[in-house]
Design a protein around this nucleic acid. Structure first.
Lengths: 232, 232
DNA sequence: CCCGTTTTCGTCTAGCCGACGATAAACGTC
DNA sequence: GACGTTTATCGTCGGCTAGACGAAAACGGG
C-alpha cells in the first residue's frame, strides 16, 4: 500500500476501555503516558496494530500485556473506530477502540510498559485531562456496557466463574447506579432461560443464609431483557 | 506517520451497507467492480479515506457519490471495522463499514463511477460471490438494522418525510420478514411518546379510508421498544 | 436460644401485549 | 345514490409480566 499509489497512509492502533466492578464502583483501567504526545496524561491502554495481526488479535494482545491475563476470561468486543484528522499530533492515526469487561482481579495491574497503570472509578475520572479523544471513547464504552447489560448476559463477565445472584445484582446496581429489589431480581435472573445455571454448590462462612452458586448460562441474548428502572 | 518510525502503514477505506425498502423487499445497494481486484464481482460501495477527512465525512461523501443524495435524508451510522490481514490482496487495508438507511428513492442510482450499481434484495444476494469480506459486512449490517428497529425510531429513516402508520408497518414487516397486526401496531406506534407526531394532513386518492400522515418524532430511543414476535 | 442478616419463595395488583370485534371513511360499480 | 370493498382507527378482553412487599428458610453471633 504505497503512498505513491494515491492511497494516503494511515497508522492504525487499538485502544482498550477495560471495565471492572471493584469496591462498589465501576472502574476503568488507565495508564499514565511516559512518552509524548500527552506525556504525563492519563490515557486508555493501547498500541499499534502489527502487520500480520487481526484487530481482535491486537486488542487481545494489548489486554494481556496490560493485565497479565492469558486465558479467555471476561469479555472483549469491538467498540467503535475513531479517526478524525488531528486527533493525534503525530499524524493520521485511526484507532479501533475495544471494550473489555473483566471480573475484579486480585492480580495487581502489572504494566509491562514503563508507564504506571491503575483502576479509576469512571465517575471520578478527570475526563478533561485524558489524552487524545479518549474521554469520548471512554464515555462511549461505558454507555455500551450499560446498554448491553439489559439484553445480554454480559454482566456475568464482571463476575468470577462461579457467583451468587447477589453478586450479579451488585454488578447491575454498580454499573447502572441504581438499587434493585433482591427478590424481583432473583426471580428474573433464575427465570430467564439460559442466563445462569446452578453450579450445585453454595457459599459458606458469609453472613446470612448461604447462597446458591451459579455459572454463566448458554444464552447469548436475554428474553426477556433486564430493564433498568425508569426515572419517575 | 513514516513507516521508518516503526508504525506499519495501512490504507483505510469506508464501505457502505446502504439499505432501503422497495417492492416489499429489504434491498441493498451493490456495485459491480470495474477494476481489480475482484473485477466483475459485486461489492459494497466504498472508497479510500482522504487525508483531511473524518470517517463519517468520507462515508457521507461516498453515499452522496453513489446515490446523488445531498441533504440530511435517511440515516448514516458507523457499523464496524474490518481489518484482517489478507482481506485485500493489495495489502493491509482496514475498512470502516457504515450503515445507511434510506427511503425508497425515485432517483435512479447514478453511479459517478464507471461501474454499474443496482438494488438487490438482501435475501437474493449471492453472498458467495461478493468481493473481499463484504458478505460478512452485509450480514452484520442487516442484523444491526433488524435489531435497531426494535428500540430506536430508525424505521422512519426508511420512510419519506411524511408517512402513514401503514407505511411504517410495512417497513417493520419487510425488514423483519414477519406480519404484524395493524391494530396493535397502530396502538403501539401512536402510544409510544416521541416516536411519531401528526402532520395534520391525510392521504387522498388511495384505496380505503384516508390515513393520517405523520412525521418522525423527537425520540431517540423507544420506551417501550417494538419487540418482534417470538418464534413459537 | 434469641436476633440480625441474607437468601429464597409467594402473593397481589397495575399495566402491557396479543387476539380480535366493531366502527369510520374513503372508492368503484351499477 | 345504494352497496360492497378496502383500509384506517377505536375498543374490549384475557393472559402475562413487572414492581411492591410479606414471609419463611438458613446461617452466624451474642
Amino acid at each position: 500500500m504505497d503512498p505513491q499509489a494515491g492511497y494516503p497512509p494511515f497508522a492504525v492502533t487499538v485502544d482498550l476501555v477495560v471495565l471492572t466492578v471493584r469496591t462498589e464502583q465501576l472502574s476503568v483501567l488507565l495508564i499514565r503516558r511516559g512518552i509524548p504526545p500527552h506525556r504525563g496524561a492519563w490515557a486508555l491502554p493501547g498500541g499499534f496494530v502489527r502487520t500480520d495481526e487481526t484487530l481482535a488479535g491486537a486488542a487481545a494482545r494489548e489486554l494481556a500485556e496490560e493485565t497479565g491475563l492469558t486465558g479467555p476470561v471476561g469479555h472483549l468486543e469491538q467498540l467503535a473506530t475513531y479517526g478524525d484528522p488531528g486527533r493525534d499530533p503525530r499524524g493520521r492515526v485511526v484507532t479501533v477502540a475495544h471494550l473489555a469487561l473483566l471480573p475484579d482481579l486480585p492480580t495487581p495491574v502489572a504494566g509491562t510498559d514503563a508507564a504506571s497503570a491503575e483502576w479509576q472509578p469512571v465517575d471520578r475520572v478527570r475526563t478533561d485531562r485524558l489524552a487524545f479523544d479518549h474521554a469520548r471513547i471512554l464515555a462511549d464504552g461505558v454507555e455500551r456496557a450499560r446498554a448491553k447489560l439489559e439484553y445480554t448476559p454480559l454482566a456475568t463477565a464482571f463476575c468470577p466463574p462461579e457467583f451468587t445472584v447477589a453478586q450479579l445484582r451488585t454488578v447491575y446496581e454498580t454499573v447502572w447506579g441504581t438499587r434493585l429489589d433482591p427478590r424481583n431480581f432473583h426471580r428474573k435472573v433464575t427465570g430467564t432461560p439460559g442466563f445462569v445455571v446452578p453450579a450445585g454448590r453454595a457459599t459458606e462462612g458469609d453472613r446470612g443464609r448461604p447462597a446458591q452458586l451459579f455459572r454463566r448460562g448458554p444464552a447469548t441474548l436475554l428474553y426477556p431483557p433486564m430493564l433498568r428502572p425508569t426515572n419517575p
